[in-house]
Every structure is written in structure tokens, then in C-alpha cells.
């Protein structure tokens, strides 16, 4: 464990909690892409099946349980409890265009052709593009609530910190996972446009609105 990975995990946890609280407190999921949240639930489910097969640490197990629990709670709030506030018209990204290619790639490019490893690889590839429906929705509505931008910032920052973690681990532990690194770079690059808008607008107190 190193400082980049710990702050990365905490940033990820913060994002998940911010979103859950935003929906719960405001009793609304306006501006939130339910499709992205479903993809994240799939990412955690396929990645953390090892909860059933191996124990690494209390921290590892508890974080995985929290991530999975919050992901499904968020999907439940969006599609069940507050479904009246779900903006399905703007959440129109065709996720099958993500899941199918990612599924195929996971079968072709992986470290080991075993069930758990292919699911892990699938979850890594899927996570790198899972935010696209959310970013697409913001581009369609042309704006995002400030709390949603904080959620996205923490979410984007987490994998950027993981990139620093992998540099650290390469240098000090000669640990290197090409699949996770490449997917992590893609994932972080997808946020660059948002990071620019967040830093130049939201941090200056303005509302995030895209040139429609």
C-alpha cells in the first residue's frame, strides 16, 4: 500500500458516497446517468468475485463490500425509489456498444484464460469506459449540478492517483500490470475535458455548462 493508492481509494470512496448522498438528500437523480451506475455495479460485481475465493485484508474486503453495496444502492435509488426523477431521455448512450467490444477484448487480451481472470479483465476494460454515458448525458443536457461535478472530479481523480500508484509500484516493487495501466490511462484521459471545465469553472464558483 502506498500514499497514491490509499488517496486513490479514498477519492473513489468519496465519489461513491457523494453520489449516494446527493440522490438520497435531494430525493432526485436528475442529471445522473443510470446507465453509468449500472456499468459500475457490473464492474464491481465482476471484479470482486474474489471476495468469495480469497482474503487479502480487512481493508480490502471492507472496501469491496462498501463499493458493491453503494453501487447497487445507487442503482436501486435511480431505477426504483426515485425513478420518477430519472431523466431517461437524456441518458440515451447505447451501452451495448461498450459492453460487447469490452467483453470480446477481455476474452482476447488477458493475463490468463481463466474464468476469474477474464471477468477481472472485463471489469478493468469496462471501468475505463463506464463513465461515457454520464459524460454523454452532460453533453446532451449542456450542464451539470455542482455536486455532480464534485462526484465526477473525485471519480476521475481516483484512477489518476492509481496511475501514480503504478509508477510507484513499478519503481519500488517492480510491479507492472499492462492491462490495468493501459485501461487506467484511457479512463483518466476520458476525464481530461471535464477536468479542464471543472478547474476553470466550478473551482471559480461558476456553474458547469457546456457550450450547447
Amino acid at each position: 500500500m502506498n500514499v497514491f493508492r490509499l488517496t486513490g481509494d479514498l477519492s473513489h470512496l468519496a465519489a461513491i458516497i457523494i453520489l449516494l448522498l446527493k440522490i438520497w438528500k435531494s430525493r432526485s437523480c436528475a442529471g445522473i446517468s443510470g446507465k453509468s451506475q449500472i456499468l459500475f455495479a457490473i464492474v464491481f460485481t465482476t471484479r470482486y468475485l474474489d471476495l468469495l475465493t480469497s482474503f487479502i485484508s480487512i481493508y480490502n474486503t471492507s472496501m469491496k463490500v462498501i463499493y458493491i453495496g453503494c453501487a447497487y444502492a445507487t442503482v436501486y435509488l435511480i431505477y426504483m425509489k426515485f425513478r420518477a426523477t430519472y431523466d431517461g431521455n437524456h441518458d440515451s448512450f447505447r451501452v451495448e456498444f461498450l459492453v460487447v467490444p469490452v467483453g470480446g477484448l477481455a476474452v482476447l487480451v488477458n493475463h490468463d484464460f481463466s474464468f476469474l481472470e477474464i471477468l477481472w479483465t472485463f471489469s478493468i476494460y469496462l471501468e475505463s469506459v463506464a463513465i461515457l454515458p454520464q459524460l454523454f448525458m452532460i453533453s446532451k443536457t449542456g450542464e451539470a449540478e455542482t455536486i455532480t461535478t464534485h462526484y465526477l472530479f473525485c471519480l476521475g481523480l481516483y484512477r489518476a492517483l492509481y496511475l501514480l500508484n503504478w509508477i510507484w509500484r513499478f519503481y519500488f516493487e517492480s510491479f507492472f500490470d499492462m492491462i490495468a495501466i493501459v485501461a487506467g490511462v484511457v479512463q483518466t484521459v476520458l476525464y481530461c475535458d471535464f477536468f479542464y471545465l471543472y478547474i476553470t469553472k466550478v473551482l471559480k464558483g461558476k456553474k458547469l455548462s457546456l457550450p450547447a
Partner: peptide, 10 residues
């Protein structure tokens, strides 16, 4: 392959 499970990251 090292014996301990190698996926210790979240």
C-alpha cells in the same frame, strides 16, 4: 505464479 493471490488492488 507466486502463491499468494496477486490482485490486492481495488
Amino acid at each position: 505464479l507466486d502463491d499468494d493471490y496477486d490482485k490486492d488492488e481495488l
